[in-house]
Design a protein around this nucleic acid. Sequence first.
DNA 1: TGTACATCAGTGAACGCGCGTTCACTGATGTAC
DNA 2: TGTACATCAGTGAACGCGCGTTCACTGATGTAC
Lengths: 228, 228
Amino acid sequence: MPITPVHARTLLAVSEAVIRTASRAQRKERTRQNLLDVTLRLIGHRSLASISLREVAREAGIVPTAFYRHFESIDALGVELVDESMRPLRQMIRDTRRGTADKIDIIRGTVAILGRQVRDHPAQFRFLSRERYGGVNAVRRAIATELRLFTSELTIDLARMTAGLDWTAEDLEMTADLMVSAMLATVMELLETDKRHPEDEQIILERAEGQLRLIALGMSVWRSTARD
Amino acid sequence: MPITPVHARTLLAVSEAVIRTASRAQRKERTRQNLLDVTLRLIGHRSLASISLREVAREAGIVPTAFYRHFESIDALGVELVDESMRPLRQMIRDTRRGTADKIDIIRGTVAILGRQVRDHPAQFRFLSRERYGGVNAVRRAIATELRLFTSELTIDLARMTAGLDWTAEDLEMTADLMVSAMLATVMELLETDKRHPEDEQIILERAEGQLRLIALGMSVWRSTARD
DNA sequence: TGTACATCAGTGAACGCGCGTTCACTGATGTAC
DNA sequence: TGTACATCAGTGAACGCGCGTTCACTGATGTAC
């Protein structure tokens, strides 16, 4: 649609309104983000189901009733947190794709990226792993959906790598699923490491690297039996 | 220590006492077990951190204060539940070892046993997977310890299978860890299946079988790089 | 076997507390003209 | 620019409720002799 003078005037009016209302709207957005951040921090030691609306509001510096200006309930806030917490994982895919095409390097690079993301965003990963099979239904389903998308993305990458090697879609998905399982287990182990033993992190990452290499080796000799 | 007449008389007295006190002790044990069962059932839809002592007592048909005759707190009950819930998993190892020595059969058999155990003891597996990274610290640590033992057992089996193939202890453990990760992910997926689609269970089990076969293939061409 | 006493699983009243949610409100910010 | 009105993020009192835990108790079961 071309921008006519009429549109231009309308757009100008709208953008002026946005600038003028920005102050209040921005402050609301800041409070909202604060509620999300505070919840993520509280989740560090406990589960979503066990934190209270009043506690979150208190930590965010607002009165309990003001919470409802932003979310319908703690569970609804949790569902929004899933999306926000998946961001580091989505970034991981992008970072990995930007890496080299050599297989050993891909594995080493992927594990390194994984380690860095977990180190940089521990609260997000802790939230996802704690609530993945946690007690809040809506949150559990939201995480399952996001992880399925993540596995799909990995399946696409595997399809590209094994192009012409006669892999079935089922086998590709099965392999991607195994890789995601191994990586998620690695994430959980990384999160459980004691900060007083930083060398544990290296051991876990090396093991993860070995596991991905083992899977890659298996792939190199895999013959599909789907049509047996 | 040999059993002397004096011992025999003492043992007799003790066993008579046991029989005589059995009624009250047995009833206490029954209530205790009932508390564990009720908690396991309540955990089906929510997390341990979100169920209350009063709720468990109510469901078990006792007054809240009577709960303390059996457990110090819900968390303490949870730790005991870990041990009870690990029983199906331990049984799995025994069942699998009783299977044949052929590799393909071992995989098929193991997956079949896994599927059966999850079907027969869903509450126990749900408890373990939900609380493995859940909000109750003591329970989380208890599960981690038990799963480490489980991985050790599997490492022993792998060592037996790869005898003379020059595998290092680290590589065996790494492989066992990957297998346990894959199996636990399978358990969680089985628990999430909708009962209205029983065919999903078969799909998940077939995928698990493929994953273990892929790992076994990788093992067959694995060369340790630990001494690089 | 009978009796007197001990044990102890389960009772029921009571407590103070933090919870989610309602409601009418305030006052700073934004909008219309 | 100035004024009159609208919006709405955050307030604060109030509610009823279920919670964990204390305490003194009851009465059936068990033990000693």
